[in-house]
Design a protein around this nucleic acid. Sequence first.
DNA 1: CGCCATCTTGATTTTCGTCAAGGTTAGTGG
DNA 2: CCACTAACCTTGACGAAAATCAAGATGGCG
Lengths: 249, 249
Amino acid sequence: MPPPATAALQGVSAHQLKVACSGCGLRELCLPLGLSPTELAAVERLIQRGQSIRKGQFLYRAGAAFGALYIVKAGCFKSSVVSEDGREQVTGFYMSGEMIGMDAISTERYTCSAIALEDGEVCELPFSRLESLSQQIPALQRHFYKLMSREIVRDHGVMLLLGNMKAEERLAAFLLNLSQRFQCRGYSPRQFNLRMTREEIGSFLGLKLETVSRLFSRFQDDGLILVNNRQIELLDLPALRRLFVNGQQ
Amino acid sequence: MPPPATAALQGVSAHQLKVACSGCGLRELCLPLGLSPTELAAVERLIQRGQSIRKGQFLYRAGAAFGALYIVKAGCFKSSVVSEDGREQVTGFYMSGEMIGMDAISTERYTCSAIALEDGEVCELPFSRLESLSQQIPALQRHFYKLMSREIVRDHGVMLLLGNMKAEERLAAFLLNLSQRFQCRGYSPRQFNLRMTREEIGSFLGLKLETVSRLFSRFQDDGLILVNNRQIELLDLPALRRLFVNGQQ
DNA sequence: CGCCATCTTGATTTTCGTCAAGGTTAGTGG
DNA sequence: CCACTAACCTTGACGAAAATCAAGATGGCG
């Protein structure tokens, strides 16, 4: 795990957990800009901060009654839908500053399950209170419309991936996406640790774990990446991008 | 086209187009219940009703500045993302009462293009006015949160389809989904006309048009459906469901 | 009536999944 | 601290599913 995250996690303490949104490094990721101090204080009262989740623990299960949205504060989560017979489709991997649970608003039940891929923390946002607060704070309402819209756009991207791209293009896109998200969070875009298994990557990308494994090996043989179990180094970002974009021919 | 839609479309006139939400048969599909007469009137002022769109016409293009959401009033639309090189992924087909354009909220640009698959009409909802109105009417805000959430859930379903299901399962799921949506609108769930080409179905389902064509033929040979060009009759709904659900094993 | 878009069907190829075996790693309990 | 175990990963051989290529049929629209 990259250093800053490690620090954030290992340094966990009552003190740190109580750090308010106003002092949170993720603030610009999850809160709208331009809130007045009063508004910010109201938002802070809304949020249940710093709930720790252990690796493998469910944040919520599909079918459970909807109570809250969650913002990942530390760690990495996967969200997945399971079909009646048990086949799992990972619908996304979520890292710090990203919100999960929006699927539950429509039916008042979670339609996905969310599981921690490593020890982590979330901020819990009780939805009914969020709703009334966003009724009072236009910027907050707008912000949540945008967050939900962003999720829709992301999903469309995944649909493009699954519907149109070949295995190697999917994996290249996946790695580049991770790279970019790590970079946004101040980590290296070239070196990172995967938090998920080959099977979970495969489930997300519509591939079998063997295919994912083979592709990692091939990318390494081709000098595109360096793989050491879950540790990834992207050696040739332009080539990966070409693979991804040219793939789209 | 099934009779009621034909009536709605062919009977188009200034008079009918001006029918307000309060008298619109789609009202329960697109508006929240329990609005007061005052609130309903405010919503009606917001909506630009009855814009006609001809077959093949763009409702909006990917990249265009975001102005409004649209509710399909008549006809059928497809929404698609196009990758840099021109591969198209159809992200959805939309029929009466369904809302499109929500992807554009996050970036203030449409990320998809929406095209009419037949002559139709839409209600236009200027987003900035929708925003301020939903600020004033809690039920409206809640309604739009739910609509966006529903779109996310739908997208997850498509991801499950694309990531986990075999070609025949995808097509069965597609037909059953259409069937159900026609039924909701008062048309026959067993007989309907497709509004889209084999290629568009294929694009949506992550298949090539030849595969779609072959599957239609096979379903027909197996006595599951009757195909006559775009006219579809579902002969054995339970078997289609089994294909869809068992497919998920 | 004729043309172009759309659809069907067949033959072949490619891609990825399946099955199988063995290796590695991390975590657990002695 | 070390040995053991279970989960995870890699690699190969083979097979199935769907894509590709190709040719011709059909149908809707001007």
